[in-house]
Design a protein around this nucleic acid. Structure first.
Lengths: 212, 212
DNA sequence: CTTAAATTTTGCAACGACTTAAAAAATGCA
DNA sequence: TGCATTTTTTAAGTCGTTGCAAAATTTAAG
């Protein structure tokens, strides 16, 4: 029952194609590499590439998909007495302090960012992911607070928290792209998080407090 | 010096192609219409279409480009004693109250929104326009306040104001798409603007006050 | 081991957005 | 009218993406 040869080979093929593609993209830029080249370099047909990845962007952003539920997870796991914003800020600070790769705080992220920055379609794709994060978070806030359909606060608070997250990630990306080390960037990002918290309104900071 | 026949004809041709395209898009959807069809319906070659519009999206979103400087204009024109946020909120309220078509408050916007909503590439394009608005606004805030390079407040305040604007526009779009009248939507949007103002922090609301 | 069924891979043709270069037509002016 | 400039068209090609049927491979059954 564990796993047949077929499954294993599929996972390997998929991983291999993704690795080859990532390598090529980082070396020559997203738009400069064609799917045909990736297929050839992977010793596979173009159709096989499409068999595993539905778009060219997926070949590069496959792992970024996990971000969609990030803030929702933080909110769902908030402590008693803690608001949604508290939990999100606490978790973001923790990830920043520990120089977590999940936020882009790792050597090599500059090369990733360079590829993204130069490609229109990759940035567009990352935006759709952020949109998904926002929609997901709004739904979570509605569930957690039981807010009515016509209540616009969950929309607004979700918007604010997603903005805070997006601003942090963009900031980190900019610094890493500029050649800073992860540690240096971490330090500056913590200062930014303080600024962000100071900018947020009380209504946001006190929203969805978990009863103790 | 005024304008030769050549210029006039060019403007006419451009306008005609845009009108034909818009008509087709609204009738059948953005992705279902090909550039070749637009060219044929306009009695022009495909390359002439590309002569006037550099991408397919431009054929539909030509007029939306003016939005980029909107918030910057509001901020630059703020009254003495008024902050950047005050000015933006005042102008947005004014436009909403007067049922301004600039915000989408006009009959027919529902059809526009329907086309946009169904097309991945159009939404992506609108996002890039919002990004431009944000960048533009941040630059304006830096100029107006003389904030230093390392000061992140202009970035954050610009982000908040662009968020408020984007949230309002999205809200209006959603209601119009749902079949509400412009007047009804205007009323609900005013309530949303109140909610937005209540959600914003003092730091944002008091930023860049013009000296009286 | 052989065979048949299921699945994966492949080659091929096609569509549509977009680019480029050069020929052809329209226009403005002397 | 003749000429220079601008606009339009034609033609050919690139690339992402899709659909389809044949071929190769893996799995399961006898």
């Amino acid at each position: 029952m564990s796993e047949g040869l077929r499954e294993r080979k599929k996972r390997q093929t998929r991983q291999y194609i993704s690795d080859v593609a990532t390598h090529l993209f980082i070396e020559r830029g997203f738009d400069a590499v064609t799917i045909a080249e990736i297929a050839e370099a992977s010793d596979v047909s173009v159709n096989t590439v499409y068999n595993y990845f539905s778009t060219k962007e997926d070949l590069f952003l496959d792992r970024s998909q996990g971000v969609v539920e990030r803030l929702s997870r933080f909110v769902r796991a908030r402590d008693p007495g803690e608001s949604a914003a508290d939990a999100v800020l606490r978790e973001l600070r923790a990830a920043t302090e520990t120089v977590s790769p999940a936020l882009g705080l790792h050597a090599g992220y500059d090369r990733f960012m360079k590829v993204v920055q130069e490609s229109h379609s990759l940035r567009s794709r990352l935006w759709f992911i952020q949109q998904d994060l926002l929609v997901h978070l709004e739904k979570t806030l509605r569930e957690e607070t039981g807010a009515g359909e016509s209540d616009s606060l969950p929309t607004l608070v979700a918007g604010q928290l997603a903005w805070a997250h997006g601003t942090l990630v963009a900031f980190i990306g900019r610094l890493m792209l500029a050649g800073r080390t992860p540690e240096e960037t971490s330090r500056e990002a913590l200062a930014l998080l303080d600024d962000i918290e100071e900018v947020l309104g009380t209504k946001v900071l006190k929203y969805a407090v978990r009863q103790g």
